[in-house]
Amino acid sequence: MMEKMIFGRYVPADSLIHRLDPRSKLTLIFLFVCIIFLANNWQTYAIIGIYTFLLIGLSRIPIRFLYGGLKPVLWLVIFTFLLQLFFTREGHLVFHWGVVKIYEEGIRMGFFISFRFFFLILMTSLLTLTTTPIEITDGLETLLAPLKKVRFPVHEMALMMSISLRFIPTLMQETDKIMKAQIARGVEFASGPIKDRIKAVIPLLIPLFVSSFKRAEELAIAMEARGYRGGEGRTKYRQLSWKWGDTLQLVLLVIITILLILFRS
């Protein structure tokens, strides 16, 4: 199950979309979330659809992989559709059987809202599939930089994010190790009544907390020894470079926006 989930996963590849600057991708997602609400008829949804699949095509993420990964979420989309279908009471009555009444507007709304939901999921997945978490962090740090003026700790947030990303695999290994040590001491994590299973988590969580605190402490000492004293006067090694492709990409987005405004009813 976990292996098939694609939410928040990065798939390395060399595509146009992978090469885009994370700032332009983040801007794209942000604007996309806004302009999708401009769509209100078949034409405009078609424009959004073509646009989304164009980007997916350019990203070289295999459609089958995307489908497999999004399957669990598709149920949610279908559920949204059914909800709209059965509970919208506007327009012509199209179908009537017992208590089930389906109206024309219900079909329309069902399609539109579930499409909107579906495209949003596709686009955000596209961002995480083609951008490493650290690139996203860098992108956010730069985009949010103006907030430093109002004393928002942008640098600290970004550092925290990148350190967390760095330590996720380490903590996973650690969890596995402690879990095995406790199984060897007779703990059963995967069977028995719920009450016992919850109790079984304690011998796992406490050692993990203890070791994480120790790690944090040692890491802080190591960082200080290497001269870290806050964001002031720091230079950055990781560099983002805005290329013509990024500008072009945003121009395309503007065109899409204009088309949406022209075709919406």
Partner: peptide, 16 residues
């Protein structure tokens, strides 16, 4: 598992 005891590397990490 009761018959075979394992002392893992850095076993102090399992204390809780």
């Amino acid at each position: 598992r009761q018959r075979v005891g394992i002392v893992f590397q850095f076993p102090e990490h399992q204390l809780f």
